[in-house]
């Protein structure tokens, strides 16, 4: 059988094919994450934690010690772990529901306390696992099962800007950025920085990764790429909102 260099060493072989839908941007982000973990050679000292929502599908994604938690609670679980074992590299992986709605208080307080964990949040502009409900990240006018006429900002407000908000709260030494899963180079660079910041013992690290959800967007691959790369990045600009000098 031909060798597969497109399969991160830190991915668990026995759980593949993974459980994500065809064309899912989240799984692409996870491949990028896998490759960065390989490059940094940190698999044996990393603890990976996933939230509820599609992120729970990653409970056996990696050949890395993993804990699947409750909805919104991935950040405190990793904060506790890191406090108990500072030598561990802790990754808290969540969706936009976990990070910006049901667990928003944890993210905010972790940023304020400068907890030295790496939080990675997938923004796919909807609640995907439950079938496409409105999320804090749903764009104005974007349809969702709980916003059948599209998100009406006068009634339910405008989309949340997580990295921008956290950058206001976070301490010096934090790394806070937004990337998109389909820009492989940018995505990997920012994941690498978000992990390196923790390895260097500097402080809180957070990246939001814009991601496609063809099944719940009811889009084909091309439309999905278009929506995420054009529509979403218009509302959610890519960039680094806080970056320690040493990482720049």
């Amino acid at each position: 059988m031909a060798e597969n260099n497109n399969f991160p060493k830190s991915w668990k072989k026995s759980s593949k094919p993974h459980k994500f839908c065809p064309g899912c941007g989240q799984s692409l982000a996870l491949k990028n994450l896998g490759f960065v973990i390989d490059e940094l050679q940190i698999a044996d000292k990393t603890v990976y934690a996933c939230d509820i929502g599609c992120s729970l599908l990653t409970w056996d994604m990696f050949e890395i010690d993993t804990i699947q938690t409750h909805h919104g609670r991935v950040v405190p679980t990793m904060v506790g772990f890191k406090l108990a074992k500072p030598s561990a590299i802790t990754i808290a992986f969540m969706g936009d529901g976990g990070g910006y709605a049901i667990g928003a208080q944890h993210l905010i307080n972790a940023a304020m306390r400068d907890d030295p964990i790496t939080a990675i949040l997938i923004n796919n502009a909807n609640y995907a696992m439950t079938g496409g409900q409105m999320a804090p990240t749903t764009l104005v006018g974007q349809k969702a099962t709980t916003a059948p006429n599209g998100r009406d900002w006068q009634k339910v407000g405008k989309p949340i800007h997580g990295p921008e908000m956290l950058a206001e709260i976070a301490q010096e030494g934090s790394y806070i950025a937004r990337t998109i899963s389909t820009d492989i180079a940018d995505c990997k660079t920012k994941i690498r920085k978000a992990l390196q910041n923790q390895i260097d013992g500097r402080g809180f690290s957070f990246i939001e990764i814009i991601s496609m959800c063809p099944v719940n967007w009811h889009t084909d691959a091309l439309q999905s790429l278009d929506f995420s790369e054009k529509e979403m990045t218009k509302v959610y600009p890519l960039g680094e909102f806080k970056c320690p000098q040493k990482l720049a």
Partner: peptide
């Protein structure tokens, strides 16, 4: 909630 889950984090790390 955070108290409960960070406690679990500590337990998982062996404390």
């Amino acid at each position: 909630m955070s108290a409960g889950f960070s406690m679990i984090g500590g337990v998982l790390a062996g404390l």
